[in-house]
Amino acid sequence: MKKRQGQLIFLIQSFEQPRILKIILDKSKVYDDVVVYGFGRKIHAVKNYTILDGHENITYQKVATLEDGKYWNRIFKYLKLLVVIYQNHGLSRKHLYIVGIDLRLMSVLVINKYVEYVISDLAWLYYPQPFKKIFGIIDKLLAKYSNKVLMTSKGFYEGHFKSYVKKENLELTENKLATYGKVFPLTNLKDDKIRIAYIGAFRYKEIISNLLKVVAGDKRLELNFYGDGFSDIVDKMKKYASKHENITFNGAFKNPDDLQAIYQENNLNFVVYNNTLENERLAMPNKFYESGFFNVPILCATNTYVGKRAEELKMGWTCDITELSIKNFLSSLTIDDIKICHERMKKLDKALFNY
């Protein structure tokens, strides 16, 4: 039997991220003691973290609740976390597993540490200059001086970190679906109409507006929203849903428990994210892995790494983010196209998409 290791300390920005929760559970099989410090979120709060309950060697603490958009307020909450770390662990050697640039920057103030740094997106790419350049340099230096760097997309490394992180210190950890044996691939799809699913966090107001207008004007289509987001976007979805029978808003869901029920009601996964943003062009969103696992064809934005991967595996298509492009694609798509793609996806190795 392989000898178990000592203590691992997780610093996470949200207790609602299924992929991180799966990593915590996996690490609990390797380490004697796993301690998790993190934050609650007001958006998409469905208590996914309760999956950690009942594991004797896992303890977790929600230090505070983070509010989206109020970034300066987070400084005091991160300082509170720093105090908690020193109160509970003192000056002894600490093995930290850190998710996100904010917490990695805070960890500079933690002495006597070994750091594994997880980079799942490049938030600083959204910042205006000169902050984009400043935080980009900071993130690269944080990665350089980490003992190990874990990235969810090869595009991040090739595009920004290749000169800072040695290959032997890099590990690619894709956003694969953690099923826990609760959900299974679909062998059939509904074929009465084109059923579009928009699943997850609602961030791209203009693209969502374009999609809403296209579907509202075409009764051949159905559009179903699952998830949560800022109130102005959610209010607009609900308004359209109240006026159009072919649009529904279904609210937050639990991952992975509710995913099979969601995907079996739909036959096209809409993952057309904002391709004018560099982070979106390089990222590999978890919807790619969910589509691949459930055998539901995916629609991605042109000029994105995820779109390229989807086309390479013949598991979907790409279109641009404009209303006209979305309309032209959906008006030309047929149920037969979807069924043929679904059959191809059934033959793909599911190890590509889930743990």
Results as ranks from 00 to 15, higher is better:
Arg309Asp: 00
Tyr117Ile: 02
Glu222Cys: 15
Thr187Glu: 15
Asp218Gly: 05
Pro130Glu: 12
Gly136Ile: 08
Arg19Pro: 01
Asn210Trp: 07
Gly136Phe: 11
Lys239Val: 12
Asn169Asp: 09
Asn269Arg: 11
Ala123Cys: 14
Lys77Met: 07
Tyr71Val: 06
Ser209Gln: 12
Lys347Tyr: 09
Gln17Tyr: 01
Phe156Thr: 02
Gln61Arg: 15
Ser209Asn: 11
Tyr114Ala: 02
Ile9Lys: 10
Val110Cys: 12
Asp68His: 12
Leu330Arg: 04
Asp32Ala: 14
Asp32Pro: 04
Phe249Cys: 05
Lys254Asn: 12
Tyr71Thr: 06
Ala201Cys: 04
Lys70Ile: 13
Ile326Asp: 00
Tyr37Pro: 03
Ala283Glu: 00
His160Ile: 04
Val234Cys: 06
Thr318Glu: 11
Ile137Gln: 14
Asp53Val: 12
Asn286Trp: 03
Tyr240Ile: 11
Tyr31Asn: 03
Val34His: 11
Asp26Ala: 10
Glu174Gln: 14
Tyr355Val: 07
Arg93Gly: 06
Phe230Asp: 05
Ser325Lys: 13
Arg104Met: 03
Gln13Lys: 07
Phe288Trp: 04
Tyr180Gln: 05
Ile20Tyr: 09
Asn269Asp: 05
Phe184Ala: 13
Leu172Asp: 01
Leu125Glu: 13
Val118Arg: 09
Val183Leu: 04
Phe10Ile: 09
Ile134Val: 14
Leu268Ala: 02
Phe76Pro: 01
Val183Asn: 00
Ile196Ala: 10
Leu79His: 15
Asn57Gln: 10
Asn246His: 10
His55Lys: 09
Phe329Asn: 05
Leu223Met: 12
Val234Tyr: 08
Val99Ser: 04
Leu81Gln: 00
Phe270Arg: 02
Ile326Ser: 02
Pro297Cys: 08
Ile335Leu: 09
Ile111Asp: 06
Lys308Trp: 06
Trp317Arg: 07
Leu141Glu: 00
Glu168Val: 00
Gly155Lys: 07
Leu125Phe: 02
Pro128Met: 11
Asn210Leu: 06
Leu223Gln: 09
Tyr180Ser: 15
